[in-house]
Design a protein around this nucleic acid. Sequence first.
RNA 1: CGGGGCGUAGCACAGUUUGGUAGUGCGCUCGGUUCGGGACCGAGAGGCCGUAGGUUCAAAUCCUAUCGCCCCGACCA
Length: 561
Amino acid sequence: MRWSRTLIPSLRNVPKDAEAVSHQLGLRAGLIRQLASGVYSYLPLGYRTLLKIIQIIREEMNRAGASEVLLPMLHPAEIWKKSGRYETLGEDKIAFKNRAGHEFVLGPTHEEVITDLVGSNIKSFRDLPLNLYQIQNKFRDEARPRFGVIRTKEFIMKDAYSFDRDEAGLDAHYQKMSEAYRRIFTRCGLDFQVVNADTGMMGGKMSQEFMVICPYGEDRVASSEGGYLASQDIATRGDPKFTPPKPQSTGPEAFDTPNLRTIEEISHRYKVAPSQMIKTLIYMADGKAIAALVTGDSEVNESKLRKLAGAKELRQADGHEILGATGAPVGFAGPVGLKIPVYADWDILGIADGVTGANEKDKHLKNVTIGRDFKPAAAGDIRFVKEGDLAPDGTGKLKLTTSMEIGHIFKLGTRYSESIGAHFLDEKGERKPAIMGCYGIGVNRVLAAAIEQHHDAKGIQWPEAIAPFAAEIITVNHNVAAVAEAAEKIYAGLTAAGKDVLFDDRDERAGVKFNDADLIGFPCQIIVGERNLAQGKVEVKDRKTGGTALVDLALVISGKL
RNA sequence: CGGGGCGUAGCACAGUUUGGUAGUGCGCUCGGUUCGGGACCGAGAGGCCGUAGGUUCAAAUCCUAUCGCCCCGACCA
């Protein structure tokens, strides 16, 4: 392909990045990200890369024994409602509605559709196992798209679903897909980790995320030197085993905090470290109010709290419920004198003379100590892990890394096959739900991750397997007839040899073309100039290493390089 | 949905506090000199300042509304 403005618009005016994250990392990193989203959203370059990634995925899915299907959204609303994940669908519509009431025909996910489809097509255990996948655009009305192409409302996803007669079959599928994913991401040139993850809304027993370390990701991975590895959502920590605190005071003392209700306000105004503050959050556990205590610099992990409290349903209480439970408006809750069950994080066991809400408007308490001033119903790990926490398996301290999720695999079990209906008759003639797994890859995130992992100050350094072009031919002096002629021959030769090359045949200064080539970053640059041509040579440059070599013109034309 | 910010030429922005002729850089057009790492000189083209009202002799600038975008938070199959 030849260089053109539609292929690559002017790269000189790349917008300055306004995001705080990229400012911290320097403008250049922001530029790369901008470029990444540009490459994806409107340039043929991004399209070529996506096709290459998709080809790799297809090959590996084929190797793993999965078959490609296409799942349309043409499904009655009842199907979508059966799983219990959707409540607000129109009765007679096949399309989803977003919050603005607009209908859309791209699905957010396809568990329901595939389960119904397979359910109506399998009868016997002989029809199983099945493993089906598709690569399709999905639409999710995300509250907050961000980071260029990393989180968008519409995105490309490879999703696969396996159906088995028994757990052993599911395990085998899960294993096969996990291996296929490793091969896919490796082939795409990514450095990734596989971490245990939360099953979240999907339900099911087990799931793992494929994570790429990247400053623009939205997820955090906790790891220890000794090998502990888990998503921050589910990471647990070891008991710090605080010795009971020895308070200096004799008892809690109230003080006025007019209109100060957040941790920051109090800590700033009264010079109290957030770690010495007892943050008290009111939750509704199966309809009854409970209190959760963590230090001022921690966040409650609701699924951990749910477990400790032994609740099925858990949600944050609203203003009315808080008033009812504590006698004070939001922002002044504290554990002292509360009538509802109190669940404390381990951290609280180490606080002597802490600061907390007084359960009275515009008042807080100081000199509050657990055991003496209040007694929790239970203490345990109820917050998200932080940098420096003990790993739960005693393998050292936890470290948190910002990561981007590029793939996620789940053992779903029978949640969907039971609710939607995908049953088969086993050898004994008994009717049983199929055991399912599901497996997703964010295709455009693979592209984004590849750029984030492979760039330098000058631009992208595409991994070979997914580079939009294998090489770029640059004429140093395009108006010199011999140069243009030699470059044309190389272009024809490489194209005939089946190589994907971009020919920068613009009549631009050499420096402009070199810089553009580095910015777009194809693995190899073939530089044709008068000087070397006189000796029958051209310069071949490796984008990644910067190394150059003089190669015979004839050899380059033959496509052997 | 809550908090904050921004809409000015193809792109990136200044000008708004204190109302008074529409600006800069890149890109674009023409001429010339250059030409192996983002050249230089000269001459140009291009904008009812997001939109709609209002205040005023006068509005990019002040006020109100509205639309759109971005950031922070909540959410995230």
